[in-house]
């Protein structure tokens, strides 16, 4: 089966007359990880929310393999990890997972220590770090064709970040993943392609040096 392609084009997002995003082109096909980098307030999270369908810009065109998508979340085409906690309280974790997990990844989820140890409990019994890991897993292993991750490496330890990168790479064998984080080294490490958002424009990054050229980094280590 042909891999699906998510295309986001001609996004125009303005706040109080200030153009946040104005010439955006983003493409992601199943089987790849696309990393988005950019300074604070450049519109990275807004772009993900526009694709997901929870932020309405002045103009956008989002499609999956040519089919126009008004709201990405409808029919579970796109899943999104927000920066904040999002799981409802008072429901057993296994019941929360049952509704959204892709059967192809149910064994992976069941084998993960967080799920294995807590699936009979509710989120109230998890620590902040454990909850964040669970939230990430439930999005990555969801039934959606495309996964959007907003700051997945924030609030987790370096060793957990390494484990997460392995999970992302495995999941990306059959899904398209778009992610953003300020921990740029993790993004560079896990992504097949990098897009930089600067002054409202998306710029493909061919080489790490481009990040210095565009003023995102002062130097490359």
């Amino acid at each position: 089966m042909e891999p699906l392609i998510l295309k986001t084009d001609s996004v125009l997002l303005e706040f109080d007359g200030r153009k946040i995003l104005q010439d955006v082109y983003l493409e992601c096909k199943q089987g790849e990880v696309v990393g988005i980098l950019g300074r604070n307030g450049c519109g990275k999270s807004s772009l993900l929310r526009i694709i997901f369908g929870t932020l309405t810009p002045s103009y956008k065109h989002v499609s999956i393999s040519g089919e126009y998508i008004k709201k990405g979340y409808k029919n579970m085409r796109v899943a999104y990890l927000p920066q904040h906690n999002y799981l409802p309280k008072g429901i057993k974790i296994k019941n929360l997972a049952m509704n959204i997990i892709d059967d192809r990844f149910s064994n992976d989820l069941a084998a993960h220590p967080i799920y294995r140890d807590y699936h009979e409990k509710t989120i109230a019994e998890l620590s902040g770090g454990e909850l964040r890991q669970l939230e990430i897993l439930l999005v990555i292993y969801s039934k959606a064709d495309f996964i959007l991750l907003d700051e997945p490496f924030t609030h987790i330890s370096p060793i957990q970040a390494e484990a997460l990168k392995i999970i992302i790479k495995k999941c990306a064998q059959i899904k398209g993943i778009i992610l953003t984080d300020h921990q740029y080294y993790n993004i560079l490490d896990v992504s097949d392609r990098i897009i930089l958002i600067t002054n409202g424009y998306t710029r493909p990054i061919k080489h790490k040096d481009d990040l210095v050229t565009y003023g995102y980094l002062s130097h490359i280590n």
Partner: peptide, 16 residues
Amino acid sequence: YNSSKTNFYFRNAGYS
């Protein structure tokens, strides 16, 4: 606050 944040769970389940 928490209820409106959980909207993302329901959207990820495919529901508006």
